[in-house]
Nucleic acid binder design. Sequence first.
DNA 1: ACCTGAACACCGTTCAAGT
DNA 2: ACCTGAACACCGTTCAAGT
Lengths: 181, 181
Amino acid sequence: MKIRQEEIVEAALTLADEQGLGALNMRAIAARLGVQASALYWHVPSKTALMRAMAQSFHARALAVAGAGAAKDWRRWLIDYGVALRRALLSHQGSALLCATARPAPDTAAAAGDLLAAPLVAQGLSRAHALSCLASINALALGWAVYEQSEAMHDHLAEMIGFDESFALGLEAMVSGFHVD
Amino acid sequence: MKIRQEEIVEAALTLADEQGLGALNMRAIAARLGVQASALYWHVPSKTALMRAMAQSFHARALAVAGAGAAKDWRRWLIDYGVALRRALLSHQGSALLCATARPAPDTAAAAGDLLAAPLVAQGLSRAHALSCLASINALALGWAVYEQSEAMHDHLAEMIGFDESFALGLEAMVSGFHVD
DNA sequence: ACCTGAACACCGTTCAAGT
DNA sequence: ACCTGAACACCGTTCAAGT
């Protein structure tokens, strides 16, 4: 039974989705593909690299969604990006923690930075300022997603606030406070 | 050689600080205390519980700093809290990831929520709105700290933006966008 | 080229046994 | 009460050997 890199990442993703990030181990991934754990190492250098690939798929999704409407007002664009990023993170269990743990490949990160900054720079923000704003939105979305995906934290916070509204409130407040430099 | 709970948490904290969170294991902690790994389980129920205790020490520090000046304007207070929280997280290696992973004890979290909301409620914000604002600030500080403590992410971002200024910018933007409900 | 089987070092945790 | 020593199951990873 032949295996490809892509299949391994996909299997890992659905496994993490079903059983949680803590249940993600090489033997379980291999079993899901009808193969031995050691077979994975022909296609993937390490579990760390595998998790990095998993994390990148989330960023890629958010980037694709946000990149679509580049003609909008830059504040609107930032808000849409933040919402899309959070949604992408929440779409799979444990993805926030995964993104917090796994570092992206340096070249991918640089390319993503350029792509994200472009629509802001086109509307008059300096590149440095655009990246700064983007980083804050990344941090906000990641932080919220971490809280929402932490079981106990989720249960506790959910009693007192609504996640969607609170995130929207914080995001809109932040973006409205940004200025063109 | 007798051991106390507190000593174990402290040893774990300094070990994580020196060697990183990945090097944190029961045998290493025990060795630092001149004891066998199995001895730890007389004082601590599990590694998970130990990490929870570690995470709580960070929140406690930030809470102590922020609780100090309760008479300030609520926006100023929120900003000071955010800055204190981030500083507390950055003071130990891997603390952000630790706080993202370990869930606090439910009663501690509830008490912290009350304590933090109090100065805001005293100045006219509703309890729900105060908690919502606080959660956003928590998320922002945690997200930033995660980025700053992720080695590769750090190196990459540091080339383009200043962490301190960018965090301050995002935090002040957000707080200035909050309103009394 | 791609996979199996068996092994290695390491880890969290348990438990009888010591003092 | 508190600690040691030895063990267990589990994990990431390697590597010879098969096909």
